[in-house]
Each structure stands twice: as structure tokens, then as C-alpha cells.
Design a protein around this nucleic acid. Structure first.
Lengths: 230, 230
DNA sequence: AAATATAATCGTTATCATAACGTTAATTTA
DNA sequence: TAAATTAACGTTATGATAACGATTATATTT
């Protein structure tokens, strides 16, 4: 029975991005097993017998963050024969975007997970650096055309927070006046009465995302970033 | 030794698109083995022990078309547990864009390969219909932003051929005068002295792709399709 | 009370991309 | 020679956008 072919392990690795309103960060764990024990690594795991790839990614993300209903997207499959020195493993990478404030696990829990600023990511095992770079490239590409970055924000957020997020994703300053105009023109935001006064004297209004419009306009190729960046 | 996990088969499936100057087509084979023997299928195969995923896709494409140096891009990994009824197989799908005229194998060779017009694709096995749809969606997305469709054309081609290709990809008519302007403004084409007189009385000039510019402008988010389609 | 820091609003302009449509040119067939 | 067919060039109005300037609001610090 079967095709009489060499079977290999299939794993899923998750590149988890989070934003705390100020800094865009990457979630890493300290690898618990040999080889490369105690080095920093993406969270991953092998697929289960009754699980599809998306399901495996969801499960791993739940284990790592305690969160259901996270924005998750398949990135790329990696299959160089020697990418794992112990046993041949094909890895399907996923990236996730979450609101750090929702992150419910204790840091330094069983996985010794930690958030790293994007510019301070440590050395990673295997081909994980390549995965992280590919994920950032994809997010930049996607965010230029679709409103995905809202997935990183809490339910209520301010425009300065939103703008800082875009500026970090593109590592580039954005004109505040044009940014506001474009964002408000998109109709995606609903202004709240309340203000966030933690970061300024005047205070910045909170906004909520119009989920209805977000869904319906997701494919509309909105350009939220200035051309000069492209 | 090893991680003591259940191993599965990993295959690569290729969605091969071709253009003959008139029709955009999909290359399919008649499956030679059980299950689903003699039904139409994408060309696929299992990864070799010393092969990475891209390498496996290249090898399969060479077997099927006789071509090296084909435009090939990873599309998506599919891993539903029962997608292959015989043995669990994770498949990494790739799509390829080739000039049909370069296709060097005899049709009805050992794989019983045949070209099908996109609107006349037969029933396919397993989740191959999903893969074909995903590939078309991705090509439409990519072609709206990058000049990938040139990969489908021969060295020398005419503007009417190019336009017909875009019209088929987007299943939508395009204004010829605006199309020409946009294409010429891109600077990607080099006009030849010779004309193709097979399809019209006046004859259409041949053009060649400026490979240098094609490479350097590939990331420049050119919009070759009218907004109305988006 | 004045200075200050951040948020938000309103406005201007030059440039560019684009859709929609009209017109002319070249060539072969009837 | 006229008709038919396809290719190629031209015009214009509209909208998006980047890059600026200027002003107002708010509450804290000096």
C-alpha cells in the first residue's frame, strides 16, 4: 500500500508580529530541544495526523500566545534537504499579526517566549532568518495594497499609533497631513468620543476599525504608503 | 535518532500556463497510476532525497516540457490530511509561465500531455482545481503590478498579441490606444523592423523585451490593467 | 501668564496617471 | 479604385497624490 516513496517530516513555523502601540515586535522562543537547544527560534511544530497546515499553524499559535482568531497567512514552504540537521523536514512558514496587548501568556512561560524589536532580533536557528525577512517583505507588499496592519492594533487606537506603525513597517517617515487625509478618505475608521492622553497634553482621539468596510474594501488595493517608498 | 514524528510524503505539483500568441492555455497530463488513473491532472511528483522544493519543481517541469530556465514561482502548500486517498501527501504547488512555441515535447508523449484553453479545462483530480484557481488569481494579482506576462511570449511578439494576452488573463477588453501608450511608456519594449503579417493586412510590428529594464523595473508596481477591472 | 509639546484641521499647488474618445495611416482584398 | 481591416497616434478632462504652509486645540511645565 502507498506510493513507496521516502517520507519526510513536515513542520509549521510561525513568524509572529506584534505591536504595542509604539514598537513593532517579533515573538521568539528559546528552543527547548537539541539540536540548537537554548538558541532563539521561531515557534514551530510538526503537523498532526488529522490536521491540515492552517490547522497546525493555528494550534501552534494558540500554544504560544493563548490566542484564537489571529490573522494568519501562509508565507512559503522551505525544503532544502539539510535545513534541519537531525532529520529531513519541510517547513511551511506562516506569519501572524497580533495585538500585543491581547497576548495572554506570561512572558518566560514554558516556551521562554520573548518579544524583540525588529531591529534587535537575535541570531536565529536554521533558515529562520530567511523566513523572518520573507515575512517582512510580504507584509510590506501586502500593507501597501491592503489594510492588513489594523490586525496589529487594539480595538481602540489613535491615528498617531497607526501612523507610527506604518512608519516602522516601511522604516520611513510619513507626512502626517497626507496620512490623515488618506486614512479618513478610506472611511475605514470610526472616531470615538474618548481620547488617549497618555502620550500628549492635548490627547489623541481613539478610533475603531469599521470591520464591515474593512472586509469589503480589503481587495481594493488602497495605497496607504507614499510613492517615494515604493 | 530523529524527532520521532510521523513522516508524510511531500510532492510538488506544477500549474503550467502557456500562450501561443492567441490563446492562454493550461498543460495537463493523463494520470498514469492509481488512484484516479487516466483522469486529467496537474504534472507532479515526489521530492527527491537531495532536492529542494524549487529543484523538484524544475525537474518535473523539465520532464513535462523539455524546458530549462522557465519562469517558476511557488504558489502555496496544500496539506489536508485526505487530499490524496492512498497516502498522506503534502503538496507544494508551483506555477510556471512558458512560451508554448518553445514547448519541445511531442504532445501525447509518455505523459499524454495536452494543452487546454482556460475556459475548457476538464475535471481534475484531488484538489487540483483549487490549485489552478489559486494560480490564476495569483497571476492576475502579479500581472497587475509586475510585468510577468512577458514570460509567456516568444522572443519576438506583437502588441496585439500582448494585448490579447492581458485581455485573456483579465477576461476583459482593454482599450487599445491606452494600452499601447502605457506599454510604450514603460520602456520595456524594443521595436523591431520586421512585421508580422499573418494576422492582418497592415501587419503589426514585432517587439522584443528589453530584458535589462524588465529586471530592473520588475518591482516597480506598474499598472498594466485598467482600474475598472480592479 | 507665557512657553511648549503634541494632535488635528484646513488649505494650496504642481505633477502625474488615467479613462474615454476621436482621428489618421497602412495594407490587402474585392 | 474603393472598401475593409487593423495598427498607431492624438486630445482632453478628471482624479489621485506628494510636498508643502499655516493655524487651532489642549493641557502641562516654567
Amino acid at each position: 500500500m502507498g506510493y513507496n516513496q521516502t517520507a519526510v517530516l513536515v513542520a509549521v513555523d510561525c513568524i509572529v508580529f506584534g505591536y504595542d502601540g509604539e514598537q513593532l515586535k517579533l515573538l521568539l522562543i528559546k528552543r527547548a530541544i537539541e539540536p540548537e537547544k537554548d538558541r532563539w527560534s521561531l515557534m514551530g511544530g510538526f503537523i498532526g495526523d488529522d490536521e491540515n497546515l492552517d490547522g497546525a499553524a493555528k494550534r501552534i499559535l494558540l500554544q504560544l500566545t493563548g490566542l484564537h482568531d489571529v490573522y494568519l497567512e501562509q508565507l512559503h514552504a522551505y525544503g532544502t534537504p539539510d535545513r534541519d540537521p537531525i532529520e529531513r523536514t519541510v517547513s511551511v512558514a506562516y506569519f501572524a499579526l497580533i495585538d500585543i496587548n491581547k497576548y495572554s501568556k506570561q512572558l518566560n512561560d514554558q516556551y521562554h517566549a520573548e518579544w524583540f524589536k525588529l531591529k534587535e532580533v537575535p541570531d536565529l536557528i536554521f533558515d529562520h532568518p530567511k523566513m523572518v525577512k520573507a515575512a517582512m517583505d510580504k507584509i510590506r507588499y501586502q500593507a501597501a495594497l491592503h489594510p492588513i496592519l489594523f490586525e496589529l492594533l487594539p480595538k481602540k487606537f489613535t491615528i498617531p499609533q497607526l501612523q507610527a506603525l506604518y512608519e516602522q513597517v516601511y522604516d520611513s517617515p510619513i507626512d502626517n497631513r497626507n496620512f490623515i487625509r488618506k486614512i479618513t478618505a478610506s472611511g475605514l475608521l470610526i472616531k470615538q468620543a474618548e481620547k488617549d492622553k497618555s502620550n500628549s497634553r492635548r490627547g489623541a482621539f481613539y478610533f475603531k476599525l469599521d470591520r464591515q468596510k474593512h472586509r469589503s474594501q480589503f481587495q481594493s488595493f488602497l495605497n496607504f504608503i507614499p510613492k517615494s517608498i515604493k
